[in-house]
Design a protein around this nucleic acid. Structure first.
Length: 604
DNA sequence: CCACCAGAGCTC
DNA sequence: AGCTCTGGTGGC
């Protein structure tokens, strides 16, 4: 009879204590009573000599143990624990995303497990490769993988992972899995193959960082600064950061690579590069020098400049494809009254509504509510409602008429138009060139078609987001547009801007070193990542929010509070431990009835 | 008469 | 969050 700790998938930050009266190993699944029912968790610790002391709760016995061998290697459990601490989400949340759900639901099947092999006994090493050409980077990766006995290669997008995987020599590919991006049977099969040592390595998107390989001596993170490594749903972990930790835990060598380093890597190692685009490849034009193409009902500001048209023409003449990029879906960004100037707002959340299509449907960008264009201004009853900030729908007809007869033009603005089938079709039709109008997602088309010209229609608009990393996101996107794809180095990139070539845009000519030096000065001043952690908390209620804010203030941390309308607030902190101390009480299992707050952490 | 579902209650 | 128990509803 001994006590043990079990990590159960759930929002609690702590493991649960049970008594254990059957033989068991750490890393095995245990079925435990919880609340009215039972759950499956992972045995994370077994205390054999501690006598059960006084406790505030009744310790129940583990019902049964599902595996006679560890399902998870200890190093992976340590990684989960570390991730739970760093991303302020708890081990249980990491477990939920890292292990296929079919293994952790009540009544989960027994699985065949082979004994774990011993320590690889390597040494942690770190290396950076920053080169704009992905061909060069990828061949370096392949060299590394030749001698590796266990590896993880991470890519920010599944399509890149798939492409790299198929570029592997046959004898490596045979022993490697392309990590499935979604759950389900395929993930379970890949997961078990990795767990049982049937494969040498995995190649995949961000999720592959959790592949339960028994031995890992090499971890590669391609495009390590990419925002895609940050999960878009709970728990908000960053796979790049986890990969770094995993390399340390496994004593593996870590290869951080990309076109641009992230702020943290830049700050730590000051990697150098003097790659910059050749003079004629990068063009700036003042958006106000543009002329207006009128679109029905939209104020004539579709920003078309001579430079845009001539660049597009040149590109089409060489039989390549021109990309016009604008992150504004729909017909117009908003609709306003010509008489009083007020925007048409959402009935539910009061955000300015976007004009979605030519059928005069309005959609709220914040909450998704839909209504039709009103006949008159809801504020002053004025009759003249006009679209502002024209979007892709308004831009597309211009592109279509420019492409002319015999050339294709496409609108790429949602998941449907970037699906596999749509992409294949587009690639076929664009062999002789054409025009694609789309959001930033359309950039991935560079892998498929010969993009000879890329125009950022309103590059300042990409910066409208208030997020502190907005400037870096835009910089790295534009930088990417200079290099991504097969013949990136012959491509012309045009930025239409109100301050052409000034501010952060100057760094496009000088390289990312110049960008980061300027940006980091500013962030240091403001105490933002990578100089501090930025924590976003969404409380489970206003009362909870108030008490959490008070807790932070007691520890000398002063949250930024957007106001009474919202249960969210932000804190910047040089270290995570005070935040952990403040928040931990709200993540005890005792709080289940009240509901749990939602936390996310930005590291760089 | 029972299958099905929404809601409540509980949580080392 | 997620499990199970409850009580109500409705289909036949």
């Amino acid at each position: 009879m001994s006590l043990c700790e079990v990590v159960v998938p759930g929002p609690w930050w702590h493991g649960l204590t049970y008594s254990l009266d059957v033989p068991a190993v750490v890393g095995a699944r245990a079925i435990v009573p919880l609340g009215a029912g039972e759950r499956i968790g992972i045995l994370s610790r077994i205390f054999d000599d501690d006598p059960p002391g006084e406790s505030a709760y009744v310790i129940k016995p583990v019902k049964s143990v599902a595996d006679s061998l560890p399902l998870l290697p200890t190093r992976l459990l340590e990684l989960f624990e570390w991730g739970g601490k760093v991303f302020l989400c708890g081990t249980g949340e990491i477990l939920r995303t890292a292990v296929p759900s079919s293994l952790l639901v009540a009544g989960a099947d027994a699985v065949a497990l082979t004994p774990l092999r011993g320590d690889p006994g390597g040494e942690y090493r770190e290396e950076c490769i920053y080169t704009c050409s992905h061909i060069d980077r990828w061949s370096r990766y392949r060299e590394r993988l030749e001698g590796s006995r266990g590896f993880i290669a991470l890519f920010p997008e599944q399509s890149l992972a798939a492409e790299f995987w198929s570029s592997l020599p046959e004898e490596i590919r045979r022993e490697t899995v392309l990590w499935p991006p979604l759950g389900g049977k395929r993930l379970l099969a890949a997961w078990l193959a990795a767990r049982n040592g049937e494969v040498r390595g995995v190649v995949g998107g961000p999720g592959a960082v959790f592949a339960p390989l028994q031995r890992v001596d090499t971890i590669i993170v391609d495009e390590e600064s990419s925002g895609a490594y940050r999960a878009y749903k709970r728990p908000f972990v960053n796979s790049r950061t986890l990969a770094g930790r995993r390399a340390r835990l496994e004593s593996a060598s870590l290869l951080l690579a990309g076109r641009v380093p992230s702020s943290r890597v830049f700050l730590r190692g000051s990697p150098r590069s003097n790659e910059r685009p050749g003079g004629a490849r990068l063009r700036f034009v003042d958006i106000r020098e543009g002329f207006s193409a009128s679109s029905l009902g939209v104020e004539g500001a579709t920003p078309l400049t001579k430079a845009l048209l001539s660049g597009t023409e040149e590109c089409l003449a060489s039989g390549r494809t021109a990309l016009w990029l604008l992150d504004r879906k729909g017909y117009a960004g908003e609709v306003a009254c010509e008489e009083c100037g007020n925007a048409v707002r959402c009935d539910i959340c009061e955000s300015a509504m976007a004009w979605e299509d030519r059928n005069a449907r309005l959609r709220c960008p914040a909450c998704g509510a839909v209504k039709s264009l009103p006949d008159q201004c809801p504020v002053c009853r004025g009759l003249l409602l006009v679209g502002k900030r024209p979007g892709l729908e308004a831009l597309f007809p211009v592109a279509a008429s420019m492409a002319g007869e015999g050339r294709h033009s496409f609108l790429v603005d949602d998941a449907r138009s970037t699906g596999k089938r749509a992409l294949g079709e587009m690639r076929e039709r664009l062999v002789a060139g054409g025009i694609v109008v789309g959001t930033r997602r359309a950039l991935s088309l560079c892998d498929q078609v010969r993009a000879g010209f890329i125009a950022w229609i309103d590059v300042d608009a990409e910066l409208r987001s208030v997020a502190y990393q907005a400037r870096f996101t835009v910089f790295s996107m534009v930088w990417e547009s200079l290099w991504r794809g097969k013949d990136g180095e012959e491509r012309v990139v045009l930025l239409q801007s109100r301050r052409p070539g000034a501010g952060w845009q100057r760094a496009l000519k000088l390289g990312w070193g110049a960008f980061w030096r300027q940006e980091l000065n500013e962030r240091k001043e403001l105490g933002l990542p990578p100089f501090a952690y930025l924590i976003e908390v969404k409380a489970a209620g206003m009362a909870q929010k108030a008490s959490m804010i008070a807790g932070f203030q007691e520890r000398g941390l002063f949250p930024m509070d957007p106001g009474v309308g919202s249960t969210a607030f932000w804190v910047a902190s040089g270290s995570l431990s005070p935040a952990r101390e403040v928040l931990a009480p709200y993540f005890s299992i005792k709080c289940s009835g009240r509901g749990f707050p939602e936390v996310s952490v930005w590291i760089d």
